[in-house]
Design a protein around this nucleic acid. Sequence first.
DNA 1: TCCGGGAGCGC
DNA 2: AGGCGCTCCCGGA
Length: 801
Amino acid sequence: SWLKISIFSTRSPSQRVSWCKVEVTVESPKVITVLVSEEKMVHPPAVVTAINLKTIVNEKQNISEIVSASVLCFHNAKIDVPMPAPERKRSGILSHFTVVRNPGGTGYPIGWKKEVADRNSKNSCSVLSFENSERALLNRFFLELYKLDSDVLVGHNISGFDLDVLLQRSQACKVLSSMWSKIGRLKRSFMPKLKGNTNFGFGATPGLMSCIAGRLLCDTDLCSRDLLKKVISCSLTDLSKTLLNRDRKEISPNDIPKLFQSSKTLMELIECGEIDAWLSMEIMFHLNVLPLTLQLTNISGNLWGKTLQGARAQRNEYYLLHTFHSKKYILPDKFSQRMKDIKSSKRRINHGPEDQNVDELDADLALENDPSKGSKTKKGPAYAGGLVLEPKKGLYDKYVLLLDFSSLYPSIIQEYNICFTTIPRSEDGVPRLPSSQTPGILPKLMEHLVTIRKSVKLKMEKESGLKHLELDTRQEALKRTANNMYGCLGSSHSRFYAMPLAELIALQGREILQRTVDLVQNHLNLEVIYGDTDSIMIQSGLDDIEEARAVGAKVIQEVNKKYRCLKIECDGIYKRMLLLRKKKYAAVKLEFKDGKLCEEIERKGVDMVRRDWSLLSKEIGDLCLAKILYGGSCEDVVRAIHNELIKIKEEMRRGQVAIEKYVITKALTKPPEAYTDSKSQPHVQVALRMRQRGYREGFNAKNTVPYIICYEQGGASSGSSAGIADRARHPDEVKSDDSRWLVDIDYYLAHQIYPVVSRLCAEIQGTSPESIEADQPVILLHPSCLLQAMKKDTKTVSRWH
DNA sequence: TCCGGGAGCGC
DNA sequence: AGGCGCTCCCGGA
C-alpha cells in the first residue's frame, strides 16, 4: 500500500542515517496514514537483485572465502501480480555484474584483461571486473549493489550462506562500515553479532537480518521448501530441472583454483555464477513468491520480510492482534519462555507460594514443562487429534465416492462458536461447547475470511489475465490464513496458545466424522470403507457413474442439512482403488474439469510418493500400481507383475539400469555433526564425509542428501557384514571412482524392490476370492516366491559405467 | 522378540 | 518455533 505522510521535515545529507534517496522525519506516527487502495493506483515497480557467490574453502580455518560475486538485477518487477516468463521478457529491464579475484594471488591468465575489456565494451557498461584482493572485491561489490538500490535481494540459500559469507568476510578483511552497510539501506558503524543461537543453526540470524534493514530478503531455498512440500530436493540444481527444465552446471569449491588457469575456464566460472543468480530469480518468479507473500501480509498485518521467511505463526499472531485490538480488547503481553521463568521465580520470592496469581502462573509453567503433556519437549502429543477410521483394505473395482468436509476446523470454529471470548477458562479436561449464540471474535473472523474469499473468487471468475492471477493468489492466501488458525491455537510457543480450544475443535472434528459415518452406514445403508479426519470413502457398489453421483448427492444432502456452517462435498470419484493401510492408498480418480471427465492416478502415502525410496523402487512400484489399477483379472495382473520383476532383475544384473535410479534421498534434520547415532544413518555418514572433503553446500541442516548403497570391490567388509550406513556413498563418489564402489544389487532387490512390490500386492489375492482358484499366480506373488525371484540368483556382479 | 527413536507422510 | 495420527526402518536391550 501507499502511505501518506502529511507533516514531515527533510534532513540534510550529512544528517542522514540511511542510504535512501529521500529521508524525512516525522513527529508522530499519527501523521502517517495508509491510503485506501483504489483501482487505478498502481504499485511501484520493485528493483529485485539476485546474488550469487563462488567461494573456496580455507582448510586451515575452515571458512569460506569469496572468489567471485555476481548480481543480476531486474529493475521493474511487479510485486502485486504474478509475472510469467513472457511478461518478464517483454517488459523486463535486466542488468548484471560480476567481480572476481584470483584466490592464489598469482595474477590472471594471458589475454584475460582484453577479454574483460571486450565484454564491457560489448555491453557498453561495466559488467565484469577483476580485483587483486578479497577486500577490493567486496568493496567493488557493495558499490555496485548500492548503485542498484534494490528493494529485494534474492538468492538460493542466501540467508544461510551468501549473506553470512559477505559479512563475515567483510569483517575479516576489515572492509569499512560505510561499504558493507550498503548491503542494507541503513547506515551502520558497527558490525552486529553475526552468529546467534536463535535461528537453530539455520537461516539468517537476527544480526544478519539487521544488516539488510530496508530491503526484503527472498531465499528461494526456504521459499521452495515452504511452497513445494512434495519436491524431493530443493537444491538449485534440482529445482532448476523440475521447475524450469534447465540443466545446471555444478562447480565444486575444490575445482575452482584450477579454473583460473585459462581465460576460457575462468569465464565459465563467472558465467556459472551469473546463471545461478538468474536461476534463483527465475525460481522466485516461477513460484510467484512476491505477490503471494504480499497478499498474506496484507491480510495479517505483519511485516512482509517476516512472511518471506515463513513465519506462519507470527502471521496468525498479528492477524489476531489486529482483530482483537480493533474490537477494543486489551491483550496480554507476550513473554518468552525465559521471561516467564524469571517472572515466576521473582514472584515466588516476593510473595511466597501461597499467592494465587503465582499458582496460576506456576500451573501454566508446570503444564508447559511437563514432558508427558508434550508441550515443551517434542516427546508426545499434548491432546487428541483427528479420527482415522480402520480401512477396509483391498482392491475396489466399482465406483468409490470420496466426500470431505471443506475447511473442517475453520468451519467448526464457526459452527460451534468456539472462541477465547465464548469459552470460560477451566481447570482441567476439555471445555464444554458454549451455549452463547452471540458469535465470538474467532468465529466472526473466520466468517469474514470466508466471505471475502467468496467475493474474491467471484470477482476472479469475471476477470482474466493478470487480474485473474492476482485474485487467485489472494483467495489462496485467505484460505491459508483461515487454515492456519487451528494449528496456532495448539502451539505452545504461540502468543494465542489455547490448548483447550484446540482440543475442543479436534474433539468436535472426531465426533462429526463419526456421526457422518453412522448416518451413512445406518440410515443410508452404504458402506464406508475408510476416512481420515474430515473425509469418508463410500463403496457405492455401482458400475454406472451417474448412479454413483446420485448416491453421492443424496449423502451430501443428508449430511449438510444437519449443520449450519459445515459443508461436506464430493472431492472426486474413484473408478478403481487400492486401499492398503491407514493413510496409504492409490486410485484412478475421476474429476470434472471444464465440464469434461478427467482420469488420473492419485497416490497417497504409498512408498512411491516418499523421497526415501530410490527412483528404481518408485518406478517399479508405479509400474505395478498401473498393472493393478488398469489390469484385468487378478491372475493377469499377478503374472504381469511377476514378469516385470524378472525383467528388471535381469537388467540390473546386466548393468543396464542407470546409476541415478539407485539414488536414495534423505533429509538432514540437524547439522550432521549433531547426530548422536550418526553411525546408523547413511545420509549422515555421507554428509560428514563430504563435508570433510570440502563440500559445504548441500550438507547442512534441512538439506537432502543423496546416496547409493554400495560395496567395496575387494574390500574387507564385503556384503552385509558392514552396516548399511558404512556402505552408503554419494553419487559423485561412486561416479568418480567406479572401479572401487559397486552398486549393491542384492541390497536393492531385497530392500528397495521387494518390500515395495510386496506391500502393493499384499491385498491382491484376498480381494477377488474367485481368482484364488487359479492358484498359479497366487504362488508367484507369495512372499517366499517373490523373495526367491528377487534374491536368490547367481552371484554375478556387474560394473557400472 | 520387543521397544524406542527418526523420517516422512496424510489430513 | 503450527497440530496430531500412522506406518516403516533400524538398532539395541
